[in-house]
Nucleic acid binder design. Structure first.
Lengths: 356, 356
DNA sequence: CCGCCAATTACAATCGTTTGAAAGTTTAAG
DNA sequence: CTTAAACTTTCAAACGATTGTAATTGGCGG
């Protein structure tokens, strides 16, 4: 018992410590109260076997009683493990800065669930890469997160590649192609676009349109898949750029409809949300679905089955996608070289396309 | 010039420092490189006026060149300001742990936007209060966040009240009633429920049903408003509990429809999502909307206008709600005693109810 | 030439934990 | 009774920044 820090002769001086509402803010406070050193308290609270069981329980009880919780900042600083994963949503190609895409929002929900389950905290950053290319490094280099999950690649492919070259614990939702450095989990969008167009053609469509802004890689791939399928079948297909942000979408589609070619009888929508707007617009114009025009969406959001008529669409496995992303991130955090994953899209036939 | 830490006789020994790829990880590294003390580097990077303009620019350039970014953990620990706001979604009454409610997800999006705009980082926690009541204190007491935003109150009203009594920077989305300690921003749900029921009655409904689980306070208020209005008009109304989680919702509604009283001609749905499911179910049963049954939703999600027929609903101002929440949180962070806000709901008449 | 003031910069304490090493204590074995 | 081994606990050095205070420098008026 070295220097007078312990409560020797404890209950002798002060009749009852519980009368004084001591505010226990730090490990040191608690240590004084328990008559041990901060080191012991630290280990006791962490549940380490190094401290005597009885001591440990006494300290834990004391901590609970005073509602003490160790300062995370200090803890994380010292241990160099933050237990936090950053989720960032790059909003490169959307001027409108609001996160509204239901697919991304749903993915976010799943990712948050997966991460929480694995004991990670989630730090959310919506990043709008306005010219500067350090939006990603601002997160990876902040020392705030152990790893980063990217919801979409937007038009920032190169930036992501550059960061991935020296920052391992990074996994993106999105496209993967040969020779790509960064780890990506996503649907085979080319294949998805192809399947969509082929289905439309197989069920009788003879003049197609693809609706959706193709600045983002994923959507661009869907377009390429669809147009390739159309070309192969000798069917014409036009591209109609529609913003992915829901606010402008409705107006843009209405606008497009005005000057539209009314001989179009098959529409590949870049997302379910676009498809739903298209359906609505078509109904207002008095065009029958799938009688006059057939429509196919992309994503298979839970909502897709609720439209009138229920939406035929290309399903993306969002739940297992989220799981795969988190899995890969964890592997990478442990130093393993987890690779990309391209999941097969699946055609879900409902009633906006004709039965063959 | 005290002890040999500076690069005196700098370029004498090593011919060119740029040849060596020194990895600059800490302030000290950068300080050595710049030949100044860490204190100066810190102030230089923070852009403080205390350092010479020329020095400051030199240091900033050096930092940029080496991609140096100060460790946030250390910074936050020392300055006791984290610049992080926690957003937590209490999932008390939903066993199904997945965040799926589109209203909450949308609110989350708006909050994240508002906070980012104000220079805050966002820490996301989905909390499922499984018996323990410290789910909130785990966030407020972690030292990780400056303040907390709650997305909904679930059935955890008392827990929130308890925390709010000693933790000021806390703002919740949800219900407010006389004498409540914690700051809440939300819609007047009783009024909303009342308006919904009244509208149905005014347009001819004579036998009502309210669909939605009322364990959460907000939904309960809607139910109370609706049933009060029905009672006042002498119209019967039944309560049909439907889970708010989208997965089970469809099945539950179908189940309810089976044993349903087919004389019901007006449905108040607790949310737009429920309304959409109801619409779908009704269509399958071959019942006409609004001919046989009228339906009114709650929220006015962007999707509400896309249903067939377009959904009559009670609008919640989610965007300005988010803004109000962040505003109040900021005031509270500055010590001001920001109070609650109850926003008026607004009836949005579309086509699932009959014209009067 | 001296002293004083302003402008810079260096020094050193601090934020609250974690953790390796050292120091004490028991207990068990020889 | 001695010594080693196994347990516990304390000590003190990090972790990487921020910031009040002291020290240095140069300029300027007297």
């Amino acid at each position: 018992m070295a220097n007078g820090q312990e409560n020797s002769g404890d209950s002798g001086n002060t009749p009852d410590t519980s009368g004084v509402p001591v505010t226990v803010r730090t490990l040191a406070d608690l240590a004084r109260l328990a008559g041990v050193s901060t080191g012991t308290v630290s280990r006791a609270l962490a549940g380490k076997a190094l401290v005597n069981t009885e001591t440990r329980e006494r300290i834990q009880a004391l901590a609970r009683e005073h509602g003490f919780r160790p300062n995370q900042m200090a803890s994380k600083l010292r241990s160099k493990r933050t237990g936090v994963v950053g989720i960032v949503i790059p909003l490169g190609h959307e001027k409108r800065q609001h996160i509204s895409d239901p697919f991304f929002l749903t993915l976010l929900g799943w990712l948050a669930d997966e991460l929480t389950e694995s004991g990670y905290d989630v730090m959310l950053s919506r990043a709008l890469p306005d010219g500067t290319s350090d939006w990603l490094e601002r997160v990876t280099g902040s020392g705030m997160v152990d790893g980063v999950l990217l919801i979409g690649q937007s038009d920032q492919f190169e930036v992501i590649e550059a960061v991935a070259r020296h920052y391992r614990p990074l996994v993106a939702w999105g496209a993967y192609s040969e020779g790509q450095t960064h780890c990506a989990v996503g649907t085979d969008n080319i294949e998805g676009g192809r399947i969509a167009a082929e289905h439309l053609i197989a069920s009788g469509a003879r003049k197609l349109a693809f609706m959706g802004e193709i600045k983002g890689i994923e959507i661009d791939e869907r377009w390429r898949g669809a147009s390739a399928a159309a070309a192969k079948a000798g069917i014409p297909i036009v591209h109609i750029p529609i913003s992915l942000a829901s606010e402008e979408m409705g107006a843009q589609i209405a606008e497009a409809a005005k000057s539209a070619d009314f001989t179009i009888d098959g529409i590949v929508a870049a997302s379910d949300l676009i498809a739903m707007n298209v359906l609505h617009c078509l109904h207002e114009k008095g065009r029958a679905v799938p009688g006059d025009v057939q429509v196919i969406g992309f994503d298979d959001l839970p909502l897709a089955s609720l439209t009138m008529p229920p939406l035929t669409t290309i399903r993306q496995e969002i739940g297992s996608g989220a799981k795969a992303m988190v899995e890969r991130l964890r592997e990478r955090l442990e130093g393993a070289p987890a690779g990309s994953l391209k999941m097969p899209p699946r055609l879900v036939v409902r009633e906006t396309t004709k039965a063959v």
